[in-house]
Computed example of a mutant assay.
Amino acid sequence: MSATTVRATDPFDFVLSPTCQVSAPPSDWASPTNDARRPFEHISFTVPDNMSGRPAVSVNCGYTGDGLPIGLQIAGQRFDDPGVLRLAAAFEVIRGRGRRPQV
Rank of each mutant, 00 (worst) to 15 (best):
Q102Y: 10
V15Q: 02
L68Q: 07
G76W: 01
A36M: 11
G98R: 10
G53M: 04
F91Y: 15
A89G: 08
P39Q: 10
G83V: 03
T64E: 03
Q73I: 01
M1S: 15
T5C: 15
V15T: 09
A30R: 11
P39V: 08
F14Q: 00
R78C: 05
R78E: 02
E41K: 11
Q77E: 04
P11N: 05
A36E: 14
L68G: 08
L68D: 09
G71K: 07
R37H: 13
S58E: 10
R99Q: 15
T46C: 12
I74H: 00
V59E: 03
G76A: 10
D35G: 08
P69V: 03
Q102H: 13
V59H: 02
S31C: 14
V59M: 05
A24V: 08
C20M: 15
A75Q: 02
S23M: 12
V103N: 11
A3W: 06
H42V: 09
F40V: 09
W29Y: 10
R78G: 04
L68C: 04
S31K: 06
G83Y: 01
L72I: 02
E41Y: 13
D49E: 12
V59T: 06
T46N: 13
V103F: 10
A88Y: 00
F14I: 01
N60L: 13
A30Y: 08
T46W: 10
F40L: 12
D66P: 01
L85M: 14
P18R: 07
N50R: 07
V22Q: 10
T19F: 04
L87C: 05
T33Y: 09
T5D: 06
T64L: 06
S31P: 05
D81E: 14
A3K: 13
S23D: 12
L16K: 02
S58Q: 02
P32K: 11
R99T: 15
V57N: 03
T9N: 10
V15A: 02
M51A: 15
E41F: 12
R99C: 14
F40E: 08
W29S: 03
R97M: 09
E92L: 11
T33Q: 04
S31R: 05
A90E: 12
P82N: 09
D80G: 01
H42D: 14
L72Q: 05
G62H: 06
F12V: 01
A24K: 02
Q73L: 11
R86S: 09
D81L: 04
Y63R: 03
S27P: 09
L87K: 02
G96K: 05
F91Q: 00
F14A: 00
S44W: 14
F14N: 00
L72E: 03
G71E: 05
P55I: 05
H42I: 06
M1D: 14
R38H: 14
F40H: 13
A24Y: 01
A90G: 11
S2M: 12
A75L: 02
M1Y: 15
V93G: 03
I94F: 13
A90D: 12
G76V: 03
R38M: 13
P55C: 03
E41N: 09
A88F: 01
G96V: 09
V47R: 15
R54Q: 12
T5S: 08
G96S: 08
G98E: 07
V93T: 14
R86N: 10
G83Q: 04
A24P: 02
F14S: 00
L85P: 03
V22D: 10
V57P: 01
D49F: 15
T33K: 09
I74E: 00
